[in-house]
Design a protein around this nucleic acid. Structure first.
Length: 507
RNA sequence: GGCUCCUUCGACUAGCGGUUAGGUCACCACUCUUUCACAGUGGCGACACGGGUUCGAAUCCCGUAGGAGUCACCA
């Protein structure tokens, strides 16, 4: 039975790296008919954040990577929070102590810092010299009994090497002199990661440890611990890390690693997952767009590439756009609606919304992009500087179109198209754009929008006529709330009535 | 700096001894066109370097260089 696990620590925002590892944990477990466990590694009391656990759970749930066992679902291996398993680690540490495989270390933080400094100075690449080993057993017992704080450290070999059999990299050999006597149990009684993972992974029968490459240097400690306990090792799989634009490991300080942020920015979970799936892994047939189910069908660790991929937002956007375009429009509406409401927009009926989304989506990459066309949802939009320029030269055409639209019997796309074409033809030598750009400016307040026939048709006659009227008024009188154009005077044209309206005010 | 991992177009990658080194994003051009997009066509663009092994190396081996990760009573 295959068991994988993700072990996030509740210390901050839900991290995209957690989603990345979870994806592989999840698909591999599903493919093997196994289970995927989420275990909370909350042994660092200093960095602990109360809401973080719920947020990771929610983020994974948003992505659809539901664990079979977790603090929320419970399960046969409960509890799933390490602080609630404190006793288990203490017992295991004691066992190692009794068997002489570990020892108590009484150094203070200051002493440790001094030791570390000296080792660094000698050019040795680790932080502890193992001096606690020399404390006699009876003295160790006595000081512990007297209440002196101590940590429990693992005795690691001084010579030779420890080999880690990594599924992706083969045999990795690390000289034992590089493996210090790591702390297993902290003086606060809680375990370090090293003790806790090993104990939990063993007890929870985890068969495949899939984790980031940053764990490779400490993997020998874990191997040594499995040996010390006499337990069989799991399969070690150290995945490449996600990198940022400069090729460094993604960091929450410098990069946007918050899953909630991607959600807010209007990324679809299925698109994010697909994108993540192409980072370091590829479909056997080279397909670049695939679902989680398809990934489950085709996954194998053999096709993992080890380079470490750069997380490229542009490419993510491309994936998102693709998914946006292929969603049935009613489904799309469900996704977009919260964003639209958030922006304060309203619409009369669902059909109207569907029509709008349909014409907008070829140019949308994220759900938030739909909110940038507020003119579909409100009359109180402003005119951009470019739009105002178009309005200035278009007064005559707008009046003509206003009359033509008013006269139209049936306000459908074909009639609208014919009307516009007829009008353009009657103005001899006129280019279509000369008419349509002012119309676009009047109806949308911008110079970029879907096709005018579609926009006119979707908005409907009354809105179109009223907007034309409003634009005409603006051209002749200027808007009451106009502010002076901050550009140094447009040369040539009479900019008397036309002033800037701040772009961002369009609501 | 020590140790470890990694190395194909700017980016994501295919390739697992014999290919004009393929695809996608980005970029550029063209087509479509009322704008912006979408779509379509084309273009630019890579095997880090040096040695081997072999009839033959992007593919195997060894060096070098570069990049990354890690060196806590954090995970």
């Amino acid at each position: 039975m295959t068991v994988t696990r993700i072990a996030p620590s509740p210390t901050g925002d839900p991290h995209v790296g957690t989603a990345y590892m979870s994806l592989f944990d999840y698909i591999f477990a599903k493919q093997q008919g196994g289970t995927f466990i989420l275990r909370v590694e909350d042994t660092d009391q200093k960095r602990y954040q109360p809401e973080a656990e719920a947020r990771v759970l929610a983020a994974l749930s948003w992505l659809g990577l539901e664990p079979d066992e977790s603090p929320a679902t419970g399960g046969p291996n409960a509890p799933y929070r390490q602080t609630e398993r404190k006793q288990i680690y203490a017992e295991h540490a004691r066992k190692l102590l009794e068997e002489g495989k570990a020892y108590r270390a009484f150094e203070t933080t200051e002493e440790l810092a001094a030791i570390r400094e000296e080792l660094q100075r000698k050019g040795l690449g680790y932080g502890y010299d193992g001096r606690g080993r020399t404390v006699p057993k009876d003295e160790s017992e006595r000081r512990a009994a007297a209440g002196e704080p101590f940590a429990v450290r693992l005795i690691t070999p001084d010579e030779g090497e420890t080999v880690v059999h990594d599924l992706l990299r083969g045999v990795v050999r690390i000289p034992n002199r590089e493996v210090p006597d790591m702390v297993l149990l902290k003086s606060d009684g809680l375990p370090t990661y090293h003790l806790a993972v090993v104990v939990d992974d063993h007890l929870m029968r985890v068969t495949h440890v899939v984790r980031g490459e940053e764990w490779l240097p400490t993997a020998p400690i874990h191997v040594l611990l499995y040996k010390a306990f006499g337990w069989p090792e799991p399969v070690w799989i150290h995945m490449p890390v996600l990198k940022n634009a400069v090729g460094k490991k993604l960091s929450k300080r410098k990069d946007d690693t918050n899953l909630e942020s991607y959600r807010r920015q209007g990324f679809l979970p299925e698109a994010l997952l697909n994108y993540l799936g192409t980072m370091g892994w590829s479909m056997p047939d080279g397909r670049e767009f695939f679902t989680v189910d398809e990934m489950i069908q085709n996954f194998s660790f053999e096709r993992v590439s080890l380079g470490g991929s750069i997380f490229d937002l542009k490419r993510l956007r491309h994936y998102n756009a693709k998914y946006l375009r292929e969603l049935p429009v009613t489904k799309l509406a469900e996704r977009v609606e919260p964003f639209l409401r958030e922006a304060g927009y309203r619409w009369d009926d669902e059909d109207y919304l569907l029509d709008v989304l349909d014409v907008l989506r070829p140019r949308a990459e994220t759900l938030t992009d739909f909110t940038e066309h507020g003119y579909f949802f409100t009359e109180s939009f402003s005119y951009t500087a470019d739009a105002r320029k178009k309005l200035r030269g278009g007064q005559e055409y707008l009046e003509g179109l206003e009359r033509a639209f008013a006269r139209l019997e049936s306000f459908d796309e074909d009639s609208i198209e014919d009307t516009i074409n007829d009008y353009v033809q009657r103005q001899s030598g006129l280019k279509k754009g000369a008419v349509l750009q002012p119309l676009r400016a009047a109806l949308t307040g911008t110079t970029h929008s879907p096709g005018m026939t579609e926009v006119v048709s979707i908005l409907g006659r009354s809105r179109v006529l009223s907007r034309l009227g409003r634009a005409l008024t603006a051209i002749t009188e200027g808007l009451p709330d106009d502010k002076p154009d901050k550009l140094p005077k447009d040369r040539g044209d009479q900019s008397s009535g036309e002033e800037a309206v701040k772009k961002g005010e369009a609501v």
